[in-house]
Design a protein around this nucleic acid. Structure first.
Length: 878
RNA sequence: GCCGAAGUGGCGGAACGGCAGACGCAGAGGACUCAAAAUCCUCCGUGGGCAACCACGUGUGGGUUCGAAUCCCACCUUCGGCACCA
C-alpha cells in the first residue's frame, strides 16, 4: 500500500513522493544540470569526492553531496557557469571480494552497483551532469593511468626498487606508507608486516618542497588539513656529516692512529650540528649496508647477526613505538668524530630506521633524550656541550629538569638551545648561531654539508591485486622492463580469470602474461601488479573537464577553462592520502605541460562525520557514557547504527533529508542524526507548503525587484524589512561563508515573519506578500529543490525556478525610521531607548542621559565618557 | 610527548570586540478534537521576588578594553592528527 494523500488534502500536506518524482523526471528530461559551454570568467567548478560504488548510498554520501548541490544550485542562481560532475572510484578490493564470494566478474558487479547508485543519486535530487561521468574501472579511463605511468617513467618519476615494504596479509597486497595507520592496514585494520619486495614507486619526494611550500597558497583550505600535510611531509633542516671508520682492532682509550682512520666513512644526518662536540657514540640501523663489513671476522660477528635477526623479526610498528625499550649491540668498532678527532664506539640500535636520513645517527646523550636513555643503559659516557641560558639574559631561561648539568648526575637530556661549551673555538656562542657556523666549518673541510631531510617517502603504487589498472610494463630477458608503447594502450584486464581468493588472479592468466617484448619481439612476460587505486583518484577531476576525449586524457583548453576546482568537498579522512596525491599529480601534469595550475583545489571544505547512537554489543542496551548520556559514533555497518537514506526518502522525502543534513550542524562539524530533528525539518517544509497555498492570490502581484514595493503601513514595512534582511543574510552566509545552517535559520525566520504578517489583523499588501513568498521559494530552492519547484509552478511565477536569479535586496528597505538602542551604564544593560535612525550622536547621547534609569544608575555622578555605537547601543561611563 | 581544533541552556547550535542563547529539537500549559495525530497560541539559562526588577551566567584563573563567548597569558577537559624521524 502506498500512503498517497487524497487530492483534497494536498493543500495541507506536502505529497513528497509524487512531487519529487515529477521534478526528478523533469530535470532529467530538460537536462537542467548540463554544464554550460564556454564558461569564461564566470566558471565555477564544484566537486565532491566521488564515491566507491558499493551499490548503496549512505548518510555520509548524502551529506557531502547535499553540501555540494546546495552550493551548485546557489551559484547557478548567482549567474555562475557551474561544472558539477560525478563519477565512480570503481577499482578496489570489495569488487574482488564479491567476485571470490559470488563468482561474478568484478566488472559486472561494479557496473551493477554503479547503476543502482545512480538511481539513488537521482532520488536525492542532486543536480549532477551525468554526461561527464568518469568511471575509473573502464578502459577509456584507466588507459590514461597507464599513459601517465609511462610519462612518469620517462621522467624518472616512476621506478622500481627492492624495499622493505608494508604487507597486509588479509588484503594480500602491499600498502603505501600513507595507508598504514598505527601499524595497521587502512582498509581492513589488520596488522601490517614487513616484506622485502621489488615494487613500483612514484617519486613524490622530488616534489616534497613544492608540496610543502605551495600549502601557503591554499588560503581557502582549513588550517588543520594544511598542518597535517606539513607534518606528513616533515621537513627538517640539518647537516650530513661524515665520520671516518677506524681500523679493526682499535681499542677504546688508545690514541687515534696518526695517519687517521680508514678511507671508509659513515655518513649521518643530524638536526643538531651544534651538539657535535658532545657525540659519545654512534648508532646504525640493523639494516645498514655497512653492518656486515664492520663485524665480519671479528668476535662480534655472531652476536651482531643475532641482534640483526632479532630486530628483523620484530613487528615494525612495535619496534618504532615510543616507549619501546631501546636495544643496542656494540660492534667493537670505532669512528672518528670529525670536529675533535675523538674515537666514538659504533652500536647497532633497534630504534634507528634505515628509511630516514642515512640510517646512521650520531648520538649525543647529554642533549637528546633517546640517546641519553641508551647511554645510561649501556654505560656510555655523557658529555655536556650546551649550558642553559641564564634567566637574566633577556627572554625566558631555557627549561631543564636538572639544576646542574653534570654528566654524572643528570637525569634527563637537556634539549633546549643554550650556550656552547667544551666545543673548542665555538665556546660561548649561542647554540642556534653555532649550528650554521659548525656546518660551514665542516663544509670547508669536506666533512659535511647542510641538507634538508623529509619524512615523506616515495609513493609505493604496486598492488598484487586484480581489480586495478594494470601497470603497463613488459619484462624481457634481454631488454629488461619495457614500457608498453602508447599506441598499444590500454592494457586491459582479461575477462576469463579465476577468482580463488589466493594470490593475484592475473598471474594465472597466460593470455595476459605471455606477450612479446615491444622492443625486440622475443617472448616477454607482462607485469601482473596493478596500480594503487589512489592513482585513479589523483586526476579524475581533470577527466571531468573533457570526459569523452579518446586522444588525450583531457584537452589543455578544457583544463584551462575549468581548472582549478573552485570548491572541493569531502571527508577529513582524506586530509593526507588523496589530497596529497592529487596535489602531486597536478604538479607532475603541470611539468608535463598538460595543465597550467599549480594546485588542483582552490577551496576545500572538509565535512564532518555523521554520527548516531548505538547499541552496546555487550549489554544489548543503548551505549551510554558515565553520565548516562547516549554515546555517539560514526554510522557504520559494524555498530549497526546506520540510517538508510532510502528509508528517510520514502518516509519524509529527499528535501527533508537534505534540509536536516544541512541545518542540524555546521558542515565541518559532526552531524548527530536525530529522528526528532528530521521530523522538525519535515514540519517546516509542510508549513511552507501550506503557507504558499494560502497566498497564491497574492503571488500573481509579486514584483521581481524588492525596490518596486510600495512603503505601505508598519506591518508591510516590517515584512519588507524581514524579507530584505533574509535575502541579504542568505547571500552572505551562502556566498562567502558556506554556512548552511544559518542560511536555513534565516529562511525559517522569514517564514515566521510571513506567518506573523498573515496573522496580523489588517489588509494585506499583495505586492509585499507576493514578493516575500517569491523570495522565500528562491532562498529555499538550493536546499529543497523539489518542493520549491512545485510551489513556484503552483504560484504561477514565470519560468522554472532553477532559471531564476538569486533575488537582490533593497538596501533602503533595511533602513528603519527608528532604532532601539541598548543603554548601558558602565557596560551593564540598564535600559532601552528608541531614537530616529538618523539621529546625530549628540541627540543619541542626550536621549541616553535623559533616561530615568540611566540617571538612577549613575547615582548622581557626572558621566566621564559616553560611547555611542550607531544602531546598537550607548554606554555611559560614570 | 608534539601539533591542531573545540569547550555557550535539557540537546543541536547562533552571535566575525557592542543587548549571550537566533533558528530548531525536547519540555510545560492552553485551543481544536469523542479521542489521538496533525495544526495553532503561550511559556521555557540559574537564583531571589507577587511583580516591576535585581544578582549571577559562555571550562577555570588572570589580563587588555568604556565594553570580552569573541583578543592576550596560564591552566583544565574533550576530540582529531603525528609519534624513538636523529
Amino acid at each position: 500500500m502506498t500512503t498517497e494523500q487524497p487530492r483534497a488534502n494536498n493543500e495541507k500536506h506536502y505529497p513528497h513522493t509524487e512531487v519529487e518524482a515529477k521534478w526528478q523526471k523533469t530535470w532529467r528530461e530538460k537536462k537542467t544540470s548540463a554544464t554550460p559551454v564556454d564558461p569564461g570568467a564566470d566558471k565555477y567548478y564544484v566537486l565532491e569526492m566521488f564515491p566507491y560504488p558499493s551499490g548503496r548510498l549512505h548518510m555520509g554520501h548524502c551529506r557531502v553531496y547535499s553540501i555540494g548541490d546546495a552550493i551548485a544550485r546557489f551559484l547557478r542562481m548567482r549567474g555562475k557557469k557551474v561544472l558539477h560532475p560525478m563519477g565512480f572510484d570503481a577499482f578496489g578490493l570489495p569488487a574482488e571480494n564479491a567476485a571470490i564470494k559470488h563468482q561474478v566478474h568484478p566488472g559486472d558487479w561494479t557496473e551493477k552497483c554503479i547503476s543502482d547508485m545512480k538511481d539513488q543519486f537521482e532520488r536525492m535530487g542532486f543536480s549532477l551532469d551525468w554526461e561527464r561521468e568518469a568511471v575509473t574501472c573502464r578502459a577509456d579511463y584507466y588507459k590514461w593511468n597507464q599513459w601517465f605511468f609511462i610519462k612518469m617513467l620517462e621522467r624518472g618519476l616512476a621506478y622500481k626498487k627492492a624495499a622493505a615494504i608494508n604487507w597486509c596479509d588479509t588484503c594480500q597486497t602491499v600498502l603505501a606508507n600513507e595507508q598504514v595507520e598505527q601499524g595497521n592496514c587502512w582498509r581492513c585494520g589488520n596488522a601490517v608486516t614487513i616484506r622485502n619486495l621489488e615494487q613500483w614507486f612514484f617519486k613524490i619526494t622530488d616534489y616534497a618542497d613544492q608540496l610543502l611550500n605551495d600549502l601557503d597558497k591554499l588560503s581557502d583550505w582549513p588550517e588543520s588539513v594544511k598542518i597535517m600535510q606539513r607534518n606528513w611531509i616533515g621537513r627538517s633542516e640539518g647537516a650530513r656529516v661524515k665520520f671516518r671508520l677506524l681500523p679493526t682492532g682499535f681499542q677504546q682509550g688508545e690514541a687515534v692512529p696518526a695517519a687517521g682512520a680508514t678511507d671508509e666513512t659513515i655518513e649521518i644526518f643530524t638536526t643538531r650540528p651544534d651538539t657535535l662536540f658532545g657525540v659519545t657514540f654512534m648508532s646504525l640501523a640493523p639494516e645498514h649496508p655497512l653492518v656486515d663489513s664492520l663485524v665480519t671476522g671479528s668476535d662480534k660477528e655472531a652476536g651482531a647477526k643475532e641482534f640483526v635477526a632479532m630486530v628483523a623479526q620484530e613487528d615494525r610498528f612495535l619496534r618504532t613505538a615510543e616507549g619501546k625499550e631501546k636495544e643496542g649491540f656494540f660492534t667493537g668498532r670505532y669512528a672518528v668524530n670529525p670536529v675533535n678527532g675523538e674515537a666514538v664506539p659504533i652500536y647497532l640500535a633497534n630504534f634507528v630506521l634505515m628509511e630516514y636520513g642515512t640510517g646512521a645517527v650520531m648520538a649525543v646523550p647529554a642533549h637528546d633524550q633517546r640517546d641519553f636513555e641508551f647511554a645510561r643503559k649501556y654505560s656510555i659516557p655523557v658529555k655536556v656541550v650546551i649550558s642553559p641560558i641564564p634567566g637574566s639574559a633577556g627572554g625566558p631561561p631555557a627549561s631543564s629538569v636538572d639544576e646542574v648539568l653534570d654528566s654524572a648526575t643528570m637525569t634527563a637530556a637537556y634539549v633546549d638551545p643554550g650556550i656552547m661549551q667544551s666545543s673548542a673555538h665555538f665556546d660561548g656562542l649561542p647554540s642556534e648561531d653555532a649550528k650554521p657556523a659548525i656546518v660551514s666549518w665542516l663544509a670547508e673541510r669536506g666533512l659535511g654539508e647542510k641538507t634538508i631531510q623529509y619524512k615523506l617517502r616515495d609513493w609505493l603504487v604496486s598492488r598484487q591485486r586484480f581489480w586495478g589498472t594494470p601497470i603497463p610494463i613488459i619484462y624481457c630477458d634481454d631488454c629488461g622492463a619495457v614500457p608498453v608503447p602508447a599506441d598499444q594502450l590500454p592494457v586491459t584486464l582479461p575477462r576469463d580469470v579465476q577468482f580463488t581468493g589466493s594470490g593475484n588472479p592475473l598471474s594465472g592468466s597466460s593470455e595476459f602474461i605471455n606477450v612479446p617484448c615491444p622492443k625486440c619481439g622475443k617472448q616477454g612476460r607482462r607485469e601482473t601488479d596493478t596500480m594503487d587505486t589512489f592513482v585513479d583518484s589523483s586526476w579524475y577531476f581533470l577527466r571531468y573537464v573533457d570526459p569523452l576525449n579518446s586522444d588525450e586524457p583531457f584537452s589543455k583548453n578544457a583544463a584551462d577553462a575549468w581548472m582549478p576546482v573552485d570548491q572541493y568537498i569531502g571527508g577529513i579522512e582524506h586530509a593526507i592520502l588523496h589530497l596529497l596525491y592529487s596535489r602531486f599529480f597536478t604538479k607532475v601534469l603541470r611539468d608535463l605541460g598538460l595543465v597550467n595550475v599549480d594546485e588542483p583545489f582552490q577551496r576545500l571544505l572538509a565535512q564532518g562525520m555523521v554520527t548516531n547512537t548505538y547499541i552496546d554489543k555487550n549489554t544489548g542496551q543503548l551505549a551510554v557514557d558515565e553520565n548516562g548520556r547516549p554515546k555517539l559514533a560514526k554510522m557504520s555497518k559494524s555498530l549497526g547504527n546506520g540510517v538508510d537514506p532510502l528509508e528517510i526518502i520514502d518516509q519524509y522525502g529527499a528535501d527533508t533529508a537534505r534540509l536536516f543534513i544541512l541545518f542540524a550542524a555546521p558542515a565541518e562539524k559532526e552531524l548527530e542524526w536525530t529522528d526528532e530533528g528530521v521530523n522538525g525539518c519535515s514540519k517546516f517544509l509542510n508549513r511552507v507548503w501550506r503557507l504558499v497555498h494560502g497566498t497564491l492570490d497574492a503571488c500573481e502581484f509579486a514584483p521581481e525587484e524588492a525596490a518596486a514595493l510600495e512603503p505601505g503601513n508598519a506591518n508591510d514595512r516590517e515584512l519588507q524589512f524581514q524579507v530584505n534582511r533574509a535575502i541579504q543574510r542568505v547571500g552572505t552566509e551562502m556566498g562567502d561563508r558556506h554556512h548552511f545552517n544559518t542560511s536555513i535559520a534565516a529562511i525559517m525566520e522569514l517564514t515566521n515573519a510571513i506567518q506573523t504578517y498573515l496573522s496580523s489583523s489588517h489588509e494585506f499588501e499583495r505586492m509585499t506578500l507576493g514578493f516575500s513568498v517569491r523570495a522565500l521559494l528562491l532562498l529555499l530552492y538550493p536546499f529543497a529543490p523539489h518542493i520549491t519547484s512545485e510551489l513556484w509552478e503552483k504560484a504561477g511565477f514565470d519560468g522554472a525556478i532553477e532559471e531564476q536569479s538569486f533575488p537582490a535586496y533593497d538596501p533602503k528597505a533595511l533602513e528603519k525610521d527608528e532604532v532601539e538602542l541598548a543603554l548601558q551604564v558602565n557596560g551593564k544593560n540598564r535600559s532601552k531607548v528608541v531614537v530616529p535612525s538618523k539621529a546625530s550622536k549628540e541627540d543619541i547621547e542626550a536621549a541616553a542621559l535623559a533616561d530615568e534609569r540611566v540617571q538612577q544608575f549613575l547615582e548622581g555622578r557626572q558621566p566621564k565618557k559616553v560611547i555611542v555605537v550607531p544602531g546598537k547601543l550607548v554606554n555611559v561611563v560614570g
